Amino acid sequence: MRALLPLLSVGRGWRVGAAARPPRRVMSLYRTEERGLPHSSDYRLFFKNVAGHYISPFHDIPLKVDLKKENIIPRKKARNDEYKIATEEPLNPIKQDEKNGKLRYIPNIFPHKGYIWNYGALPQTWEDPHQKDKSTNCYGDNDPVDVCEIGSKVLSCGDVIHVKILGVLALIDEGATDWKIIAINVNDPEAEKFHDIDDVKKFKPGYLEATLNWLRLYKVPDGKPENKFAFNGEFRNKAFALEVVNSAHECWKAMLMKKRDRGTINCTNVHVCDSPFHCTPEEARSLVESIPTPSMSKISDMEEDRWYFLN
């Protein structure tokens, strides 16, 4: 199975320009439009389809492009900015994450500089916070399923790529299940060598151990305890990962049809025609245009870029 992963990647810098810049082409099916400046709470990255209509990357980009491919959407950072899909906002643009009124940044945990993979999410998936996972005995974290894409190309925020799913790790984040899918870009030069999680151990020795260690420690510089994992931190194989993805996709479908409590999640969409949250392209454009024009001078102070040496 392959997925279309709107992957928000983290390795390159943002372009600086006007509040609303020309759309940037993503592959050929999707484009993005930036509003506001990076390093500000105003910044948003909206998505458009090939016809130029605004869409939701959470709800309107399909999970699967065929039986062997999934989509991912990378979340890209400037420096170590931490970006997320704004699940609570109309059309779910990408924005920089905030906590306690401050923009969030990913720490550099020696020897790693920020993230160690392209970090993104599977569209049309949802980890239901009201459903307890039978394998972890914890509820979902109320977000799309995260993906660590291990290919050689550093992606840009908002790129939409096809990936092969290889395995999964079960992070327990403050008591909630936060699955981390391990996948590789189908267009990576070495993609044909990777079919399951054991191939990562074989062809990228030490990578899974580094992934586990990074995820275990990345909140420690903020004064939080080390993260915990289900299955004693063991990675599960492709078959298990596909079950996780399929279950999260079913939860998303139930939410879009008003069969699950969605809480504060905004389900406005353009392409899921039988959903009660469906809107027309014209209504979607009005939603975006109704957002106040960001202030060009509201750039927040960037966090000091430093290394953390942890025992």
Rank of each mutant, 00 (worst) to 15 (best):
G120L: 05
S56M: 04
A239G: 00
K64E: 13
A230E: 05
H59D: 12
S152H: 01
A191K: 06
H162W: 01
V147P: 02
E127H: 03
K228M: 06
H195T: 14
H278P: 01
N269K: 06
P281W: 04
G101M: 07
A239M: 03
K64H: 12
I265N: 10
L91W: 03
D173R: 00
E89F: 12
K259Y: 02
G114M: 07
E89T: 12
A254D: 14
L155N: 11
M302D: 07
A18L: 09
Y139G: 00
D222G: 08
T32Q: 03
D81T: 15
E304Q: 11
G151K: 01
S156T: 12
K132C: 08
G175I: 01
K258M: 13
F58I: 04
K204D: 07
E34Y: 04
K68R: 14
L310T: 00
D42H: 13
N142Q: 02
G13F: 04
T211R: 02
A239S: 13
A248N: 09
P276V: 07
I150N: 05
K238E: 11
A284V: 10
V220N: 00
L37T: 08
P129S: 04
I182P: 05
L63R: 08
W117A: 15
L67K: 13
V163A: 13
Y43C: 12
T268L: 14
Q131S: 13
P189S: 05
V186L: 10
E209M: 03
S247D: 10
F309Y: 11
R44D: 10
A170L: 02
G17L: 09
R260D: 08
F240N: 05
V168C: 13
D188F: 04
L217A: 01
A19V: 13
A230D: 12
I106T: 15
A176M: 04
E209K: 11
K219C: 03
P38Q: 09
N118G: 04
P74N: 15
K76I: 12
R21M: 13
P23C: 01
E304D: 11
L103S: 11
E283R: 12
A254S: 14
H130W: 02
M27Y: 09
G167F: 03
I161T: 12
N142H: 08
W307V: 05
L208Y: 08
D199C: 10
F309N: 02
L171G: 01
N187E: 15
D173T: 00
T32Y: 03
S297M: 04
F58W: 08
